[in-house]
């Protein structure tokens, strides 16, 4: 496998201070975790709050450094201080709150921020900014003020700001958590397009199970470890395991799972509405 990111036996610990008791405990947010992210793939990471998924995400571009173990981005160790900028350029990160990632008061100036930091010549920055805005469908808003845009639009600007650095991989930490359904759909569509058309590797962290349906691969994290790693259909067919770790399944999966429990012979791997309906019909016919 051609990996863009290799995570090798990584543990991340932090000190948890209890201000009242004055105690200090070392907590491991990520435990001896190994993982390969394939170039050009679309991976979704699921996990409840505190499962360690955000900590893992922040390690993928060197924002956090592993306590032990190593992470390689395109062969570069994220601990290599000389090449820190290179790692951050290759693996771009988008966070939950779009408001707190936008630096400038004009859309195009904000998108230019990354390339400016990289020392790209002015003429090329302009081209990159236009390309990036076009790829997220926001070119018409080039001269707008970000704070007048909708949440989904702001988050697309934040994505464009990363795309303008021409990254290999995009890591997004719950980018849709604060958005309405329309905004969420905009972001997912944008990510699928960037993955398909530009070949950018996508690592998406989310709480919304529906958003995992289009992924090549779904990882489930719990308590700092990866407890499941498979294609979406297989992941969501195991409803009980997901519920046990505080997660949910798409309603189609829940329906099929409950039908199966009630004696229907359905294949619980169906995810889309059409697939689910077809499964139900098959089950009804087979009884005749």
């Amino acid at each position: 496998m051609d990996s863009i990111i290799s995570v090798k036996n990584v543990t991340y610990e932090y000190k948890n201070e209890d201000a009242y008791r004055g105690e200090e405990a070392v907590v491991a947010a990520v435990k001896d975790l190994s993982l390969e992210i394939e170039r050009g793939s679309f991976t979704v990471i699921l996990g409840h709050n505190g499962s360690g998924k955000s900590t893992l995400a922040k390690m993928l571009n060197g924002l956090n450094k592993p306590t032990s173990g190593d992470i390689f981005v395109d062969g570069i160790n994220t601990k290599d201080e000389e090449r820190e900028i290179e790692v951050k350029r290759k693996v771009g990160m988008v966070f939950q709150n779009p408001d707190n990632q936008i630096i400038a008061s004009i859309v195009e100036e904000d998108v230019a921020f990354g390339p400016e930091n990289l020392g790209v010549p002015p003429k090329e920055i302009k081209e990159r900014v236009n390309d990036a805005l076009k790829s997220v469908g926001m070119l018409d808003f080039k001269e707008s003020t970000p704070h007048r845009l909708s949440g989904g639009q702001k988050q697309r600007i934040a994505i464009a700001g990363i795309i303008a650095m021409q990254p290999e991989c995009l890591v997004l930490d719950e980018p849709t958590a604060m958005l309405d359904p329309k905004g969420r759909a905009e972001i997912i569509e944008t990510l699928i397009r960037l993955n398909k058309e530009k070949g950018i590797t996508v690592v998406l962290i989310t709480h919304y199970m529906e958003e995992a349906q289009n992924a090549d691969r779904v990882l489930v994290m719990n308590d700092g470890e990866i407890i499941a790693d498979d294609v979406p259909k297989v992941i969501f067919s195991d409803v009980e395991r997901l519920k046990k770790v505080g997660l949910d399944v798409p309603q189609t999966a829940e329906l099929l799972y409950n039908l199966k429990k009630n004696g229907f012979s359905v294949d619980t791997h169906a995810l889309s509405i059409k697939e689910a309906a077809e499964e139900i019909i098959k089950a009804l016919h087979s009884e005749e």
Binding site: Q251, T252, L255, N258, N262, I273, A277, I281
Partner: peptide, 27 residues
């Protein structure tokens, strides 16, 4: 979503009611 599955079933010729909105009712 479960209602959408039922709409689909109806389109496919299964005589299902159109007032199903929860998984338990659907089952």
């Amino acid at each position: 979503i479960v209602t959408r599955v039922f709409n689909e079933l109806k389109n496919m010729g299964i005589p299902v009611p159109d007032d199903v909105f929860t998984v338990s009712h659907a089952v």
